[in-house]
Design a protein around this nucleic acid. Structure first.
Lengths: 186, 186
DNA sequence: GTCTATATTCCGATAGAC
DNA sequence: GTCTATCGGAATATAGAC
């Protein structure tokens, strides 16, 4: 049997990214794990503790991925970056920014701060990737890299949302646009 | 004094687009209007009736705007299209797609359908604008217009979300990218 | 059309036994 | 670490008076 605390975190993350923070309850998690409501409160006294821990674990994942990619080419780094959203789509989830940004004002303060941290972390990492790729001629584009990073993150984020609503090929279409916009062939 | 029903609709829309559908209650609206909870139930028996009516009114607004722009150049149509998001940003709101897409599975069925309708309406209109502009040489781009419409809607939508989280200049940056990507100078 | 009053359900949370 | 039991609060909603 797996560690209950870890399972709670994973189910909580799934619920946030499929239903949203305010649309899931401890009861949802309890039912899935066939335990009682109160057992979850033992691991995470308040819902905001659970939410904050989930966000921190997502931050850790990105930091880890960054570390893993350290020696990759800029192109491969970009591919791994986009994979974050690929994986979301496969699991039929939106990314954490897409899930929580719209209602950030309604979140516990700790969660608001962690969400900002994630946004900054992703944008900064992507900006670094773009600058590296431009410098060593892997990528070719004229805009400044911050604007480009904004555009790429925005379009990836929103394509998961649109895909959820329309179930059309928007995510694949966006991915293709991104590759073309930095002029790598795939 | 203004029509109560209309005021409820406007406040409801504001609340959905600043807090999200599940984070506002009839009590919020009642407080703002200094009336009682039950008075709102008179106008909209259920929250889903209110939500559905709000979405329908947004559809009507877009149809109306489309009609208004009928004789405009493609460039001016595009500017008016982007103004939808400009206005959202000024009011510190996200667009309705940004607000509701992440939790579409948790919405009443009627609202889910209306949200899909809005997404299709906006994408189709923008696609028409892009095709017209390309045909008469106002715009210059190589991608197919559907992919481009997807990219533009996605990036506008998400830039409002990112802007809310980071309060950086991402929305203006995205707008500039859009103009450049169809090669009009402003 | 708006009010008071109330019913119901659900959610987050805690106390205390095992 | 999980359970039962229970509380307080909030949200959706309805009945009936004015």
């Amino acid at each position: 049997m797996r560690d209950t605390r870890t399972e709670i975190l994973e189910i909580g993350e799934m619920l946030i990214r499929t239903k949203g923070y305010h649309s899931f309850s401890y009861a949802d998690i309890a039912k899935t794990l066939s335990i009682k409501n109160a057992a979850i409160h033992y691991h995470f006294p308040g819902k905001s503790d659970l939410g904050t821990t989930i966000l921190q674990s997502l931050i850790n994942n990105v930091e880890l991925l960054k570390e893993t990619c350290k020696e990759y080419s800029a192109t491969d780094k970009l591919l791994r970056f986009i994979e974050i959203y690929d994986n979301s789509k496969m699991l039929d989830r939106v990314c954490i920014m897409g899930a929580l940004s719209p209602c950030i004002d309604t979140l516990p303060e700790q969660m608001q701060l962690k969400l900002k941290e994630i946004a900054e972390l992703l944008l900064k990492w992507l900006n670094d990737i773009l600058q590296e790729g431009k410098k060593n001629q892997e990528f070719h584009f004229n805009e400044n890299s911050i604007d480009k990073a904004n555009l790429i993150v925005s379009s990836l984020l929103a394509s998961l949302l649109l895909n959820k609503v329309l179930n059309n090929g928007v995510f694949e279409s966006i991915k293709q646009s991104i590759f073309e916009s930095v002029q790598i062939s795939k």
